[in-house]
């Protein structure tokens, strides 16, 4: 009889303890829920804003092209790698008619992107019709682990309409000497 009573009291204690724990958990949830909701609200508000800014960026991109780079005088230079793993680019500088117009230091992700077929827009600007000179200065680590600096020049004729020049870099075994291949996108 005493044992039964003790068991009942113990059960009641456990039950009270359980209720207390449940109450504490509910209280904790009540306390935490506004904080979580606020963080979620803030995240979704930020995402909405980022989407609006991205839309604006599209509009600005088009406007910038219209204002700054009229098609008739526009020249764009793009860089690609002709083959994977032959050159690990460190930096590139670009000169148009001996004026420096662009330079870039590469991150690992950018190098990887180029190796996977990515194309970099090195320069977008304006030049008058006629003949111009493009000079590229490159520093890179070659496939045979040499650190090199090479320059290449290319003369091009700026014609009416946009001019898009592709600089493709290649190097082949055994010397892995870089080759600069210039071509125009039709």
């Amino acid at each position: 009889m005493v044992a039964t009573e003790q068991a009942r009291v113990a059960t009641a204690r456990v039950s009270r303890a359980g209720q207390n724990a449940l109450a504490a958990a509910v209280a904790l949830l009540i306390v935490m829920t506004p904080a979580l909701t606020t963080a979620d609200d803030l995240n979704s508000d930020i995402n909405r804003l980022k989407a609006q800014v991205a839309d604006l960026a599209g509009e600005l991109y088009a406007l910038e092209e219209s204002i700054l780079h009229p098609a008739d005088t526009q020249v764009a230079v793009f860089l690609t790698l002709a083959r994977k793993d032959v050159l690990e680019l460190d930096s590139i500088e670009l000169f148009v008619n001996d004026t420096p117009v662009s330079s870039h230091l590469y991150t690992d992700r950018e190098r990887q992107s180029l190796q996977q077929g990515g194309v970099q827009q090195l320069y977008l600007g304006n030049v008058p019709h006629g003949e111009h000179e493009l000079r590229a200065v490159l520093t890179a680590r070659t496939g045979n682990d040499r650190y090199i600096r090479r320059e290449a020049e290319h003369r091009f004729q700026k014609r009416p309409g946009e001019s898009r020049i592709q600089l493709s870099l290649d190097a082949r075994a055994p010397d892995y000497e870089p080759r600069f291949l210039f071509s125009e996108w039709k």
Binding site: S66, D72, R109, S113, V119, Q120, E162, W185
Partner: peptide
């Protein structure tokens, strides 16, 4: 004297699409 020209309008052919994809790929990496 030239007035601002037209926006660059890329043709919708396969080569152009591939170029745009490759350019966007590098932009994302950058």
């Amino acid at each position: 004297l030239t007035v601002c020209g037209q926006n660059v309008a890329f043709a919708g052919n396969a080569t152009e699409v591939a170029r745009m994809a490759a350019l966007a790929q590098f932009d994302l990496a950058a």
